[in-house]
Write a protein that binds this DNA or RNA. Structure first.
Length: 418
RNA sequence: GUGAUUGUAGCUUAGUAGGUUAAAGCGCCAGGUUGUGGCCCUGGAGACCGUGGGUUCGAGUCCCAUCUUUCACCCCA
């Protein structure tokens, strides 16, 4: 039984629905291209160490959600639980910092693995589109990345996915903020949940993200990161907000988004929808100025985001976005005489070479069945060749839309189906 | 990891208070006289009733376990 069942939390994308994926993938490529980002493809798995260092070994993702195993050479390998670390690794390994900066890259349909309990909009394997921009510290880089996401959403027909923005500061201002937060929480920490008690020591920032009601209540009036930014971070954030306003983009400052990956600094943002259930973050990203250094490179600023294909598709469906169906088949060849098959094969090749989408019967069905089949797979024309036509050197060409049918010469086919 | 939920033909479902050969619609395949689709008609294939135990003379229908589905928590795309 198990061998005919996909593992929990994974999904097949079937031939009948693949056009939906192609549709958004094409828009992603086009949009990235307009912003002059270039595609990068990196491995599906990396050395576990990369994620421990890059994503952070106190994060939930690394702690309990990674698909980690030892390969036959005793290397610890992990299926990537997010897209950025692998790209950063490739950036360093291939010395892309020696190329003219900034380096602007994207990836499409990149599989991401996390051991989670599946639910609506959440899977053990999902696919991400993502953007990484290396080398620019300007807030205009943040704006560019955010605008790319925004444009993309618009291109796929989504206008009501809201942008939530925050700044969580940098290593310079973080300690002061953590101090302020701890000072505020200290009196109430007893009433908070177990994980928050731990976070209080290891990563107080993440307490802001806690969903336990009692914790949320306490956190509600906690100091905000945006009020404790150092001069540089504050200026950066103000510039970003300024550009977005200038561009007429709506956003909401959400002091509680902190993101679950340790590499983020300064800007963090999410595009959130309330139409697809509890897992409403369609796109999440931010600035990660420490990542490159963290994994062994010279310090280099960077910004990026990841966008979930499955969630995007769900959101589009919820919004009633109409995705164009694949093009019809131009010509289907029906045969009523074995001797016609070679001729059909030749005609078929001619049509295909000329750029048409064409098929022939390879099931040896009756003419009636061939017609029924042609109808089901949606053809513009059926070209019928039986012994009569074979003799006369003609083809019976039937329009499946109008039902009209005419006999044409063999060599008139290309012209007739245009 | 926690809580709840689901599991009958490819799909959507029906299966009486447990009782003989498990139904239907859609889909699929084939026919409906001489070489032809979309409607209609007829026929056919297709289900070890998720799996493994148990209760019972007898279980798709009851019990247990397990896997799976779905939703939520958590986390995140």
């Amino acid at each position: 039984m198990l061998i005919t069942k996909a593992p929990k939390g994974t999904q097949d994308v079937l031939p009948q629905e693949i056009y939906k994926w192609h549709y958004v993938e094409n828009i992603m490529r086009d949009t990235a291209d307009k912003f002059n980002f270039k595609e990068i493809r990196v491995p599906t798995f990396e050395h576990t160490e990369l994620f421990l260092r890059g994503v952070g070994d106190t994060t939930d993702i690394v702690n309990k959600e990674m698909y980690t195993f030892e390969d036959k050479g005793n290397r610890s390998i992990t299926l990537k639980p997010e897209g950025t670390a692998g790209v950063a690794r490739a950036f360093l390994q291939n010395n892309l910092n020696q190329e003219p900066l900034p380096i602007k890259m994207y990836y499409v349909n990149s599989p991401v693995f996390r051991y989670e309990r599946p639910q609506k909009g959440r899977f053990r394997e999902h696919h991400q589109f993502g953007i990484e921009l290396f080398g620019a510290q300007s807030a205009y880089a943040d704006a560019e990345v955010i605008m790319l996401a925004k444009t993309l959403l618009k291109q796929v027909g989504l206008t009501s996915v809201s942008l939530h923005l925050n700044s969580i500061g940098c290593p310079k201002c973080r300690p002061q903020y953590n101090q302020a937060l701890k000072d505020y929480l200290r009196d109430n920490i007893d009433q908070m949940c177990g994980t928050c008690k731990e976070r209080f020591e290891t990563n107080p920032l993440r307490i802001l993200d806690c969903k336990v009601d009692s914790c949320k209540e306490i956190v509600k009036d906690a100091p905000k990161t945006v009020d404790h930014l150092c001069e540089e971070c504050d200026a950066h954030f103000n510039t970003l907000k300024g550009v977005l306003n200038e561009l007429g983009e709506e956003f909401e400052i959400d002091p509680l988004i902190v993101r679950g990956l340790d590499y983020y600094t300064k800007t963090v943002f999410e595009f959130i929808t309330d139409t697809i259930g509890a897992q409403g973050t369609v796109c999440g990203g931010g600035r990660y100025d420490n990542l490159i250094e963290e994994i062994g490179g010279k310090p280099l600023p960077a910004v990026g985001f990841g966008m979930g294909m499955e969630r995007l598709l769900l959101t589009m469906e919820a919004a009633g976005v109409k995705i164009p169906k694949p093009e019809k088949i131009d010509v289907y060849f029906a045969q009523m005489d074995d001797k016609a098959k070679d001729l059909i094969a030749v005609k078929l090749a001619e049509l295909r070479n000329a750029g048409f989408k064409a098929e022939m019967d390879i099931m040896d069905r009756s003419l009636k069945s061939q017609m029924k089949y042609a109808n089901k797979i949606e053809c513009r024309y059926v070209a019928i060749i039986g012994s009569d036509e074979l003799q006369k050197g003609t083809i019976m060409l039937r329009s499946m839309e109008s039902g009209e049918q005419k006999e044409i010469k063999n060599d008139e086919l290309l012209e007739a189906v245009k």
